[in-house]
């Protein structure tokens, strides 16, 4: 059996290990919840993580182009990008797969029967991680953009008018500051 076959055979165990390791990046009280509920709508974070990790695993096994895994990566990274973790922590999840595989296939990987294949797989995981980092940056930039875009959206007509009459009307929307404030 080649490494792929081994991985396919042990898929469930490896995924479980990987998932658990990813959950360790959350505080205990949180990860408990993420583990318990399986429903897509009752526990969307847990759901997205499990589904996403599985899709990534399958993709790696089949050796597909990393780009085609973007949607699955995205579904995970997009969540982790707003979970208040340091980037190093948020982005550790691809690497944890190496750990999970080495842990689960420990006996088989002893010796260097699979070392060639394993090296290839590990660089694929590295590529995945780099790609994930791109997505992470896009997500973070989106958050900052949202903050700016939203304030524009909130005052869209004001801005439009300001442009039309070429002068700012002196409004300070949302802050309620007012020259006319008096008791």
């Amino acid at each position: 059996m080649d490494l792929k076959g081994l991985l396919a055979a042990k898929k469930d165990a490896i995924l479980r290990k990987w998932f658990d390791a990813v959950l360790e990046s959350y505080p205990a009280d949180t990860s408990n919840f993420l583990k318990t509920k399986k429903n897509r709508f009752a526990n969307p974070v847990g759901y997205s993580l499990t589904k996403g990790l599985e899709a990534l695993f399958d993709g790696l096994l089949q050796g597909v182009e990393i780009e085609t895994l973007s949607p699955s990566l995205d579904s995970i990274v997009r969540i982790r990008a707003v979970q208040g973790m340091a980037p190093s922590k948020a982005m550790i999840f691809p690497f944890l797969l190496k750990n999970a595989i080495r842990g689960e296939l420990e006996p088989e990987l002893r010796g260097d029967r699979f070392s060639g294949e394993m090296t290839a797989l590990e660089s694929a995981i590295d590529a995945l991680a780099l790609h994930a980092f791109n997505i992470y940056m896009q997500c973070r930039e989106k958050i900052y953009a949202l903050q700016a875009e939203e304030s524009q959206r909130l005052t869209y007509r004001l801005l439009q008018k300001a442009k039309m009459v070429c002068e700012v009307q002196g409004e300070d929307p949302g802050t309620g500051s007012s020259k006319d404030t008096k008791k």
């Binding site: 509920k37 399986k38 429903n39 897509r40 709508f41 009752a42 759901y47």
Partner: peptide, 9 residues
């Protein structure tokens, strides 16, 4: 709604 064999939640 069941999703790819998710158990009854």
């Amino acid at each position: 709604l069941r999703n790819d064999g998710d158990r009854l939640a």
